[in-house]
């Protein structure tokens, strides 16, 4: 039997690397390797052609406003390919600036609009001050078997994002999409957009595994991922969660979600 392989396309690592996205890749790579799955990472740089059909998983990280505008232009010709892939359940993980790029536009404080990829019906507008800090959410996982349903990380964004899709989760503590509706991120089929970094995956191994599973399913493999020893990951997860929620709320959340 040939080794199972997942082909990950890392979009513009030279521009979108603001919040340590290589950490997310290191996590996916190691967790795949421990299950004898080869995660092959291809950086797609400015000027390279993107063949969406060559990949099982795409990663779009965060960057500055200037860098986002460059990436938006660069990806515009691939909009239709990306849209078709999303409808066919291709997993894409988009974080911070990458998340904002998925929508129709990202409006800056000066009124200028950076056009998005229009992959989802979503818009991002300016607000007063940046939304910064540790964040914990309740993962509204669809068809997930995970026992653990909290996600923790850090957020740092000026834009306020609005959409009507299912959110990635409900905010337990922090700001989320727009600081108003207590929702964070977006999930449409296997597309995940979120403001959470830290990076996202090291302290959230259940989410990392979900993404690996989406990629395997997209490739036509439906076997289960075997469980790993994630003691350190969960210790780090719960240390942040407890500190963030306070002992009382943490105890309640833990009873309900963990």
């Amino acid at each position: 039997m040939s080794e199972v392989k997942i082909r990950l396309g890392h979009l513009f690592p030279e521009l979108l690397n603001l919040y340590a996205d290589q950490g997310n890749i290191a996590v996916l790579k190691r967790r795949a390797a421990l299950r004898n799955i080869l995660l092959e990472v291809t950086p797609i740089k400015l000027g390279n052609e993107l063949k969406v059909e060559d990949f099982d998983l795409l990663l779009l990280g965060g960057g500055s406003d200037r860098e986002q505008a460059i990436v938006g232009k660069e990806l515009a010709p691939y909009r239709e390919d990306l849209q078709a892939a999303i409808e066919a359940n291709m997993p894409i993980l988009a974080i911070c600036g990458g998340y904002q790029l998925l929508g129709k536009f990202y409006e800056l404080a000066n009124g200028e609009r950076i056009p998005g990829l229009r992959l989802v019906d979503m818009e991002t507008k300016p607000g007063h001050g940046r939304l910064i800090g540790n964040i914990a959410i309740e993962w509204m996982a669809q068809n997930e078997s995970s026992k653990e349903l909290t996600i923790v990380g850090f957020e740092n964004h000026g834009g306020r994002t609005y959409h009507d899709y299912p959110a990635l989760g409900k905010v337990l503590k922090g700001h989320g999409n727009n600081g108003r509706d207590h929702l964070e991120g977006l999930q449409y089929k296997s597309l995940i957009g979120t403001y959470i970094h830290g990076p996202l995956l090291p302290k959230n191994p259940h989410l990392a595994d979900a993404i690996l599973r989406y990629a395997l399913n997209y490739r036509g493999h439906f076997s289960l991922l075997e469980a790993l020893d994630d003691q350190l990951e969960w210790d780090a997860h719960h240390a942040v969660l407890q500190e963030l929620l306070g002992n009382k709320k943490y105890a309640r959340v833990r009873q309900r979600l963990c």
Binding site: A20, Q22, G23, I132, P199
Partner: peptide, 9 residues
């Protein structure tokens, strides 16, 4: 710095 993501860089 409250954000520890830099450790991964």
């Amino acid at each position: 710095g409250r954000d520890v993501s830099w450790l991964w860089d």
